[in-house]
Amino acid sequence: IRPWKNVLEDIQQGNNRLKWKDRAPYAYWRGNPTVAPTRKDLLNCNFTHYWKTTTRLYTQDWKVESAQGYRQSKLQDQCTHKYKIYIQGWAWSVSEKYILACNSMVLYVRSAYHDFFSRGMSPLQHYWPIRDNTKCSSLKYAVEWGNNHTQEAQSIGEAGSRYVFQEMKMEFVYDYMFHLLTEYAKLLRFKPTVPPGAVEVSPETMACHQNGTYRKFMMESLVRSPSDSVPCNLPPAFDSNELRDFWDGNDKSIKRVEAWEDEYWRTHPKPNLGS
């Protein structure tokens, strides 16, 4: 995968090639299902025509893809559906930010893990929440809702994408890393020292022994000069009331979606096909 700044530029080109209204009205996912039981469970939504009317799920064999030069896995070529599914892997998945960047309404399968940026997002604003224990019916309802509320679905997709492009620029990521390490250092109860025999590592020494694509991408991501501005100011931490209000708001949005979904299935009984 190319450096983040370059990938964002590629995905933006993909977004420009196919506007949301012209995209396929299905929920799309491509990935490796073997890394987690929840992903294997997702593939059950591929096995009956009833669920497949709203989902398009594809298994990614990375060994085959590597041998073929990654022609079928270019991120900018995967912004072709109105809805994209995010689902965790062993833990959080690096795919989250790429999926969000596509301008598609992200169908976010409930996860036990969070990326460093995901806590700043809210359901129904940046993504649509999907139940983990009834994925197929939850995904089907989400797509049905989106296809009947196209303006709202498009707005959610664009808000998630805008969050990635505006709030996750590399300079902001570096600011976050700076503040994270600074605050972490304040918690240390010892004075760090360089252990005997330690070897200093720099970007140059990491890249110089690499060849081919690895070296190319390392050199593309190399920061060649310090920033000409100071890091952003760290905003004050939420107090307990603010934090509770934020989480309560997110919880209410999720429960609202689940109530809509429950009502839908009460009036649209599904066949006995599993979840």
Score class of each variant (00 low, 15 high):
Arg2Ala: 07
Asn6Glu: 15
Ile11Met: 02
Trp20Ser: 04
Trp20Lys: 00
Pro25Ser: 04
Pro25Leu: 02
Trp29Ile: 07
Pro33Lys: 13
Asn46Thr: 10
Thr55Lys: 03
Tyr58Cys: 12
Gln60Met: 15
Lys63Arg: 15
Arg71Asp: 10
Leu75Gln: 09
Lys82Ser: 03
Ile85Ala: 10
Tyr86Glu: 06
Gly89Thr: 09
Ala91Val: 07
Lys97Tyr: 13
Leu100Arg: 08
Asn103Leu: 00
Tyr113Asp: 15
Tyr113Ala: 15
Phe117Lys: 11
Pro123Gly: 12
Gln125Pro: 02
Tyr127Met: 07
Pro129Val: 06
Pro129Ala: 08
Arg131Glu: 11
Cys136Glu: 09
Ser138Met: 00
Leu139Ala: 08
Ala142Pro: 01
Val143Arg: 07
Gly146Asn: 07
Gln151Trp: 02
Ser155Gln: 13
Ile156Pro: 00
Gly157Pro: 00
Tyr163Pro: 00
Tyr163Phe: 09
Glu167Gln: 15
Phe172Glu: 11
Tyr174Leu: 11
Thr182Ile: 05
Thr182Val: 10
Glu183Trp: 12
Pro192Met: 01
Thr193Lys: 05
Glu200Ser: 07
Glu200Asn: 06
Met206Lys: 04
Ala207Thr: 03
Cys208His: 07
His209Val: 06
Tyr214Trp: 06
Phe217Arg: 06
Ser221Ile: 01
Leu222Ile: 06
Arg224Gly: 09
Cys232Glu: 12
Pro235Gly: 11
Ala237Trp: 07
Gly249Val: 02
Trp260Arg: 07
Glu261Ile: 01
Glu261Lys: 01
Glu263Cys: 04
Trp265Gln: 04
Thr267Val: 13
Pro269Cys: 11
